[in-house]
């Protein structure tokens, strides 16, 4: 039987040696993920099917009670509170992602059009907000948008808001801060795609009779799609679970997934119910991602306008 040898970085290895090496090299990472990612998730899924004991303990009877409650069937009859929280959180994530796309697309194209020296500067500027803690940034927005701040006064002077009112708390303040925080997650992968763009394909589309919109739709969008999808996922995921910003800038009037889960694990001591919220939100997000990945992976099809 011939012995299969492979040369790797100048070393001659048998297939067995090679496998051992790959396993050895990846073992720490695999072990880490297994211990701190896979096991906890399985625990959460498991706990979500158990019941809450009288003192907040997790007890034996296996039940779907948590999921029933989550769907809105509590002891007081039907209440859409939790489905609403889920929808609200997803809406926040999608809204943030959408605003980031609207702001990030022109920004990525603008940065890509700069000369190489200014490109580095611009990318650094995009990343700079990360150097500050999230809480500090959020409080900074509070100050910036407060009723005695210059932004609020300017808005009042133009007549956008009544006299003496602030721009915060409110939906505007939440989205302003969310977009500011998550824009870099979208711009960086998108920029990487825009940078590689083959403009002759856009010219070919123009030459074949495509107007501006069709050039973007058929020649540019397919090329930047991987970066755009990656960016949207990177914004959508954390934005959906975000609750600090809506709390601090939205006036803490509405519950979101993040608060709901924290509420159950913290003050309410209802771990099974908290787990079920976590599991459902995870499932919803994963279905969404699978759908997006499928969309992005579709090739060779062209819908008619």
């Amino acid at each position: 039987m011939p012995l299969t040898l492979r040369v790797e970085r100048g070393e001659v290895l048998t297939a067995r040696q090679r496998t051992l090496r790959i396993l050895g090299a990846s073992a720490p990472g695999v072990a880490w993920l297994a211990l701190f990612f896979a096991v906890p998730i399985l625990l959460i899924v498991g706990v979500s099917f158990l019941s809450r004991g009288s003192y907040g303990t997790v007890e034996a009877p296996v039940t779907f009670e948590s999921y029933r409650r989550l769907a809105g069937f509590g002891w007081l009859g039907f209440d859409a509170l939790y489905p609403l929280i889920l929808v609200r959180s997803l809406a926040l994530g999608m809204g943030t992602a959408l605003l980031c796309v609207l702001a990030g697309l022109p920004l990525a194209f603008f940065i890509a059009s700069l000369s190489s020296r200014w490109k580095t500067t611009a990318l650094t500027l995009v990343v700079i907000p990360f150097w500050t803690n999230l809480l500090i940034r959020t409080y900074a927005w509070q100050i910036l948008l407060a009723s005695d701040g210059w932004l609020a006064r300017a808005a009042g002077a133009v007549g956008l808001i009544g006299p003496g009112e602030g721009l915060y708390p409110g939906i505007f303040a939440v989205y302003a801060c969310m977009v500011c925080d998550y824009l870099p997650f979208l711009v960086l992968p998108l920029y990487a795609s825009v940078e590689k763009l083959d403009w002759t394909i856009a010219e070919a589309a123009m030459d074949l009779g495509a107007n501006r919109w069709n050039v973007f739709r058929h020649a540019i969008l397919p090329q930047i799609r991987p970066g755009l999808v990656a960016g949207i996922i990177l914004v959508f995921l954390p934005a959906t679970g975000q609750f600090v910003i809506p709390d601090l800038l939205g006036g803490a009037k509405t519950a979101l997934l993040g608060n709901a889960i924290q509420q159950q694990f913290g003050p309410n001591l209802d771990w099974p119910f908290g787990s079920s919220i976590a599991v459902v939100s995870l499932a919803v997000v994963m279905i969404g991602l699978w759908f997006m990945a499928r969309q992005a992976g579709k090739k060779g099809e062209m819908e008619l306008l």
């Binding site: 002759t200 010219e203 070919a204 020649a219 397919p222 060779g300």
Partner: peptide
């Protein structure tokens, strides 16, 4: 076009 510039997708 010189590079053909076909739509890759």
């Amino acid at each position: 076009f010189q590079s053909y510039a076909l739509f890759p997708h």
